[in-house]
Amino acid sequence: MADDSLWFIFLNACIINNFVLTTFLGICPFLGVSGKYETATRMSMAVMFVMLVSSTCAYFINQILVAFDVEYLRLICYIAVIASTVQLVEMFMKKFSPALFRALGIFLPLITTNCAILGLALFQTFREYSFLQSVVFALGAGAGFGLALVLMAGLRERLELHDVPSIARGAALTLILAGILSLAFMGFAGIGG
C-alpha cells in the first residue's frame, strides 16, 4: 500500500498511529471527559468538527506563510486560527443547539488547549500533505480520537460498579487502563508496513 494513498492516511491516523493512545495527543480531555459515555460522544463530535475546520484553515495559512517566507509565524497563526474556530463553534452551538451547548459546558472552550488539534495542524505541515490529504488526515484523527474516548468511557462506566482498592481509584486506575488499551492498539502496528 502506498504511504500517501488517502485510505492509508485515514487508517494510519485513526487506528495504527491513534492520536491518543500511541502519539499521546489530547490526553487531557481523554482523562478528563471520559467519565461518562454521553459526554464522551458529544466531546468527540465537537473535536472532530474543530479538527476539520482548523486543518482546512491551517493548510491555506501555511500556503500564504510560505509564499511570504515568514514560516516563523506559523505557530502563532495556527493557535490563533484554532482559538477562533473554537469560538465560532461555541457561538454556533449556543444559537442552534442550546441543549448541547449546556451539556458540553466548560469542555468547549478547553478544546483550544487540546494538543491533538494543534498537533494535527503541525503534522500535516511537516508531512507536506496536499489539501485533500489534509482533510482525510483530519477526518481520520478525529475518528481515532472519538474511538479512544468512547472506548475509555465505556470501560470507566463499567468500572464504577466494581470494588477497586482505594489508592487506585481515580487517575491511577484510568492511566493503567489507558496503558492496556494502548497495548491493544500496538497490535495494529504492522498494518500497511
Binding site: T22, F24, T174, L175, I176, A178, G179, S182, M186
Partner: peptide, 16 residues
Amino acid sequence: PPGGFFVLGFWLLIFA
C-alpha cells in the same frame, strides 16, 4: 507508548 501510561499510573499509585 503503553509504558508511559503504566509508569505514570504506578507512580500515582505509590503517591496515593
